[in-house]
């Protein structure tokens, strides 16, 4: 069995989301910030008439902030509550991977990453971290640590 993943980079880490969960990938869009919202929420974007919340993955994963001049990309994922955009540094390829190189996250993985990373694919060049999109877009238990 193989699965397809849409991959992207956040702070040098290589992440993947199941292709079926991704609605589309779009370039950086101007967005409207939401006052009083948790810092993980970067703003709202207009996706062809639909208003989509953009979550900054760096903040969500408690990674250092992006350089000001580096514009993030939108990975729009489908969630129970409609589309949500995840802001990432850079987009990778869509990769097809054999199931047998999957492993659960190592015990040493700490913090939010442990909560949001479903597992790891041991690719030759790099490890691919698989993100649980439902948990990622659910901020109810995320708090506002960032």
């Amino acid at each position: 069995m193989t699965k397809q993943f849409c991959t992207f980079f956040v702070n040098g880490l290589f992440f993947g989301v199941e292709v079926l969960k991704v609605q589309e990938v779009i370039r950086y869009q101007g967005m409207t910030r939401v006052p009083l919202a948790p810092a993980t929420i970067q703003g709202l974007i207009n996706l062809r008439g639909q208003i989509v919340t953009a979550i900054d993955l760096r903040r969500r994963l408690e990674l250092p902030p992006r350089d000001a001049e580096q514009l993030p990309m939108n990975v729009v994922v489908r969630s129970e509550d409609g589309a949500v955009s995840l802001l990432v540094d850079e987009i990778g390829d869509v990769v097809e991977i054999q199931d047998d190189i999957f492993e659960h996250p190592p015990e040493t993985l700490k913090g939010v990453a442990r909560e949001l990373v479903q597992g790891v694919y041991k690719l030759k060049a790099q490890l691919l971290l698989i993100l649980d999109t439902e948990k990622t877009v659910n901020l109810a238990n995320a708090g506002t640590r960032a």
Partner: peptide
């Protein structure tokens, strides 16, 4: 409507384009 991530903020009733 706003996404559920923003439902907790009572100051906003929604958004518009």
């Amino acid at each position: 409507p706003l996404g559920k991530q923003l439902k907790g903020i009572t100051c906003f009733a929604g958004a518009t384009i």
